[in-house]
Design a protein around this nucleic acid. Structure first.
Length: 640
RNA sequence: GCCAGCAUAGCUCAGAUGGCCAGAGCGACUGAUUCGUAAUCAGUAGGUCGGGGGUUCGAAUCCCCCUGCUGGCUCCA
């Protein structure tokens, strides 16, 4: 007679025969999703594990972050295992799971070639097929050091010396041992759907002066479909890469002779920028902002006083002029502060909200430049708010609200929000930090927003809130940053006369909502895949006459639309209509009007919507009304 | 800046092992075609092979330096 044990899985308790396999029990749970792994007493096990005693079992599902981390961590070990088999003598560094995949760092004389990578991937598949058990092994620190010294793994020795406790946890699969806390899959056979993606250089412990390592990136999933979906996503992202679409749609370009990281906005890109800027100003005016303008250079002393020369690496070298040193501005703050300091301020004046689309120049190292997303000259949608302590919270709420209003207009409605608190090295008073951090917290809570706290991740001069938006491909982009600044307030001796007649230090909030126009534009291009909605499209409507005798009508429509404030064009080239349609479609013009005999007679136009095809005839006035509506409402939907 | 890779016509790309005047498609231009929902036909022009130096009888091709770009490291809007 078999003995019964009580097992609790996912809140259901069962009395089962001792030795029943977990996989036999699972069908009884009637789960909507199939689990891939389980956790028994903290140990990660496969579903084929027998249940030998009373216990609680947690199930891990294929899309859980925890499960993916375990899988990818094991995949990174598999990678290292394969590399050591193929290239004996390679030293292993670290190999963690990361968002969307994993990597492993290696120290080796020769970098890996693309051919090496496919050989490595093949070897990994071979090792996975062997289904080698992955076992946790505990050594004494002494044993572990001895072991890794014998293996010639000097980087591991360094890590164990530093991080190892009395007992050192390692994971072993076949001949391969790694210093690692785990957890890991029960065996290599669980790593089925993976791909090696790329190789690159990396520094040992991220230190530029440290050893140069070779990093290999890969990704892994539990289900084949997940891997396929991910690789498809990468393909899709590549297709809508703004560096490809930008020049293709004649939006912007770079020029080697001009210099890296310096953007040329072409007329079409500039049109979109104008629309964004106009909208930005309108919304700021609604929120009682005022605008300022400031020059692009200032005496170097300004930047000495602000601390930028000291703390900021991205400055360009100074410009000499008449024996004085001037500096290209990397930030707008000192100028706004000087406007503030141009006269005495009273508590009644506050808050002051001053915005500027300020173009700044930062020296970014050549290797970090990346399309519009990382450039050397860019325009911050900047503003500085000078306020009293009691206004801090309401001002922050206001900024958050404005940021979301702006971002939502572009279709960004999902956010990840981070609050970064006081780091180890900081300036200012702890009371001020606490007060300000509390104000930021309350502001987030009052706005009913979920947020994560990044403890100690604030900048040295103040706590901050960062908002990341998710685009249509679910990729995350940092746009909004709201930063308190205790440093500049102090350095430039900001003050106001309080109710008590004494001088007080105002709080300085530094904020950018879209981030920079260049970067935001790059994000937008990818988000929309170049298919800008009517309110943003550089050409909103194009009129295509069928033959020359319809040109006058097309011209008249074009003129009428322009007078109505629409961005319109007429294509009067002597081409067949199919050609002109194709041309308009490839230029991603949202609205296409085709006019021939019928339309001229009836005062109509035949409407075609980009991506949606032929929508039939429409009266010109009706069309105009609808387009104006789309434009005015900043509709993201092109259908009319 | 560092590691690896890339740079041929406006764009996308061919041009093994160095060797006849460097090719194609699209685009541009010229001409013909006056046409109904994603490419009409014919012709013409267009290239310091990213720039500089070197090796060689001879370099787009091999070597060095520079510039720019790509994937990362680091940093950040």
């Amino acid at each position: 007679m078999a003995e019964l044990v009580k097992v609790t899985v996912e809140d259901s308790t069962f009395s089962i025969e001792r030795g029943t396999l977990l996989s036999e029990l699972i069908p009884r749970l009637k789960l909507s999703q199939k689990p891939v792994l389980a956790k028994m007493n903290g140990e990660i096990v496969g579903l084929g594990r027998p249940l030998e005693e009373a216990m609680k079992v947690e199930l891990i599902y294929p899309d859980s972050e925890e499960g993916l981390d375990i899988l990818r961590h094991s995949a990174s070990h598999l990678l290292a295992h394969a590399v050591l088999e193929l290239f004996p003598g390679t030293k292993t560094g670290i190999g963690p799971p990361i968002e969307n995949g994993f990597y492993y760092d290696f120290l080796r004389d020769k970098p890996f070639t693309p051919e090496d990578l496919s050989t490595i991937e093949k070897k990994m598949r071979e090792l996975a097929r062997k289904d080698i058990p992955i076992k946790k092994v505990i050594f004494s620190k002494k044993e572990a050091l001895h072991l890794f010294k014998d293996l010639g793994q000097e980087l591991k020795v360094e890590l164990i010396e530093e991080k190892g406790e009395k007992e050192v946890t390692c994971f072993q699969q076949g001949d391969f041992v790694d210093f690692c806390l785990g957890p890991h899959l029960p065996s290599t056979g669980g790593i089925k759907h993976f791909k090696i993606l790329s190789a690159s250089g990396a520094y040992w412990r991220g230190d530029e002066k440290g050893k140069q390592l070779q990093r290999i990136y890969g990704t892994a999933f539990f289900l084949k479909q997940q891997l396929v979906d991910y690789l498809t996503l990468l393909e899709e992202a590549k297709k809508r890469d703004h560096r490809r679409l930008g020049p293709e749609l004649d939006l912007f370009s770079f020029n080697e002779d001009l210099g890296g990281g310096l953007v040329l906005w072409h007329p079409k890109g500039a049109t979109i920028r104008q629309v964004i800027e106009d909208y930005w100003r309108e919304e700021h005016i609604k929120d009682d902002y005022e605008f300022v303008f400031a020059p692009h250079i200032a005496k170097l002393d300004v930047w000495r006083r602000s601390g930028h020369t000291e703390f900021y690496e991205a400055m360009y070298p100074p410009i000499q002029s008449e024996g004085l040193e001037y500096e290209l501005k990397p930030m707008n703050c000192p100028f706004h502060i000087m406007v503030y300091n141009s006269r005495q301020r009273s508590y009644r004046d506050l808050p002051l909200r001053w915005g500027e689309l300020g173009t700044v120049y930062r020296f970014e190292r050549s290797g970090v430049l990346h399309g519009l997303l990382r450039v050397r000259g860019f325009t911050v949608d900047d503003a500085h708010i000078f306020c009293r302590a009691d206004q801090l919270e309401s001002e922050t709420i206001g900024v958050i609200r404005l940021a979301m209003r702006l971002l939502a207009a572009f279709g960004f409605k999902d956010y990840d929000i981070f609050l970064s608190t006081r780091p180890e090295k900081y300036v200012g008073k702890v009371e001020d930090w606490d007060k300000a951090t509390q104000a930021l917290k309350h502001a987030l809570e009052a706005s009913r927003l979920d947020y994560q706290i990044d403890e100690g991740e604030g900048v040295f001069y103040g706590p901050k809130i960062d908002i990341k938006v998710k685009d249509v491909l679910r990729r995350s982009w940092q746009c909004t940053t709201i930063q308190l600044d205790f440093n500049l307030a102090e350095r430039f001796d900001l003050n106001y006369v309080g109710e008590d007649g004494k001088l007080h230090r105002p709080f300085l909030i530094h904020r950018a909502l879209l981030g920079s126009l260049e970067r935001f534009f790059g994000i937008l291009i990818e988000h929309f895949n170049g298919n800008f909605p009517v309110w943003l499209a550089p050409i909103q409507v194009i009129i295509l006459p069928i033959s020359e005798r319809h040109d006058d009508y097309a011209r008249a429509l074009d003129k009428k639309f322009k007078e109505e404030g629409l961005r319109s064009r007429a294509d009067l080239r002597r081409e067949k209509i199919g050609y002109k349609i194709r041309d308009a479609e490839t230029h991603k013009i949202p609205l296409i009007l085709i006019v021939g005999d019928k339309e001229v007679d009836q005062g109509t136009a035949s409407l075609r919507i980009h991506g949606l095809g032929d929508k039939g005839e429409i009266k010109v006035n009706e069309f105009l009304e609808k387009v104006r509506e789309l434009d005015k409402n900043k509709s993201l939907d092109v259908n009319i």
